[in-house]
Amino acid sequence: MANPTQFRHYLIAQDADGANLEVLRSSEQVAVFAFDSRRQVFVHCHVLLDPVEDQAAFELAPACLQTRGTPCGPGW
């Protein structure tokens, strides 16, 4: 297995060929499997492929996920 790539305090997991382990890929983002060395837990890091158009909705999504346990969308 390849060594993980470090981004800030995250260690991005890689497969045997050195490719990042992707959890999700869409036209807007890529999420990779990683280890948070500060909290000592596995996480998924989202990498946005384009600049954020709606900053308020972008900031609301993690808070909604944390409090409700589900993603929130318009009208929720």
Rank of each mutant, 00 (worst) to 15 (best):
A56W: 12
P62Y: 05
T70C: 12
D15K: 04
H44C: 07
V23D: 00
C72D: 01
H46A: 14
W76G: 05
Q6K: 13
A34N: 04
R38G: 05
V23H: 02
D17L: 10
S37Q: 07
I12K: 04
G73C: 08
P71A: 11
L49R: 05
F58E: 04
S26H: 03
P51M: 09
Q40T: 01
Q40F: 11
C45W: 02
Q6A: 14
E22R: 01
A16P: 12
Q66S: 09
Q40L: 03
T5M: 12
P4L: 00
Q66C: 04
T5G: 11
L60K: 08
I12N: 00
V43Q: 02
V47H: 15
G73F: 03
T67H: 07
I12H: 04
Q55E: 10
T67L: 08
L24P: 07
Y10Q: 06
P74I: 11
A16E: 13
A19W: 15
C45N: 12
A2L: 06
Y10I: 03
A19R: 11
F35R: 09
V47N: 15
H9V: 13
L11W: 06
I12Y: 06
L11H: 02
G69N: 08
P71L: 03
V43T: 03
N3A: 13
E22Q: 10
M1Q: 13
L60N: 12
L65T: 11
V30P: 01
V47Q: 13
S37D: 14
R68P: 00
A19Q: 12
R25Y: 11
V43G: 01
A19D: 11
L60S: 00
G75H: 01
A13Q: 15
T5V: 14
P62D: 06
G18Y: 10
Q29W: 14
M1W: 10
C72H: 00
A2V: 01
A16D: 13
L60W: 10
H9P: 11
W76E: 02
D54H: 02
Q29T: 15
G75T: 05
G69V: 05
A19F: 14
R8K: 15
R25T: 04
E59I: 12
M1H: 05
S26P: 01
H44S: 03
V32N: 05
A16W: 14
A63C: 15
D54Y: 02
N20M: 02
M1L: 15
D50G: 08
S27N: 09
V41C: 06
D15I: 07
A56N: 14
